[in-house]
Amino acid sequence: MDNKQFDLIIIGAGPAGLAAAIYTSRASLSTLVIDESMAGGQVKTTHQVANYPGFVDPIPGHELASNMRKQAERFETKFELAAEITDIQLVGPEKVVTIDNVSYTAKNIIIATGSSPRLLNVPGEVEYKGSGVSYCATCDGEFYKDKDVTVIGGGNSAMEESLLLLQLVKSLTVIHQFDELQAEKITANKVVNNAKTRILWSHEPREFIKDKDKMITLAENLKTKEIIRLGSDGIFIFAGMVPNTGLVKNTPLNLSEQCYIFTNENMETNLDGVYAAGDVRVKKYRQITTAIGDGTIAALNIIQKG
């Protein structure tokens, strides 16, 4: 097995990981960034970023992500992308990350794996992904022009994506588990007040079924326990996020009940030399800017330790 030594390994090439890499590479620490996908994290799949300081006009997320990666590369950060980590050792002075048959070692490691859209884990969800079940209105909305769609969720993503869909579809039914929407009022009201919108309050989907060209949602009324059958042409799911901590689940790293990583204000975890930054750690606000703040803090602590 090959072995490659670095000063720092960063797992996750989102804003937190890339910000840390820019700082540590610029400070001449040899830095490796590993990601199971491409650089950019959730930013790369964000249509437009309008609240990132320094850009007067909204910038496409993939462009912002690409710029961050190029900036890190300019300081000689190394990347292993589309990489499948097969083993990770976080205890002891040398941290080891294995990809296929190559071991990468470093004294310090930053976990910046972010979070991913939550799956509902109901029958039919995975089976019909892309052929009736979607997670992106921008991408797949036009397949449902003048058709009836169902949206699962009542948070900001669900309402923002619903607004996009309402420009295209004939009708939109929101299925939401609570009696009110969790999204910001300004967006939620635009959806609720649209004549094409119908909302099923206090319902949760239990199964998705395909019936010829139609998608059927079996949804439970959480108050009466009655199961209703709702037909539409497509289902869009926006059910929140979950941390990407599967990789460290079987390590001694302290995780919250929801599996986010506990850190102190220096982004240090309970394990010496192991840091966490960005959406993957326990915190209140998860934004690009706060992720970058986390990555910066972790990097500066590692640089200071020498």
Binding site: S37, M38, A39, T45, P60, A82, Y135, C136, C139
Partner: peptide, 19 residues
């Protein structure tokens, strides 16, 4: 297209083109 669901797949194809 250059949409949120496409970008990661294109990126992975670019890496695998070398691999």
């Amino acid at each position: 297209r250059m949409g949120p669901m496409c970008i990661p797949v294109y990126g992975i194809f670019e890496v695998y083109e070398e691999k």
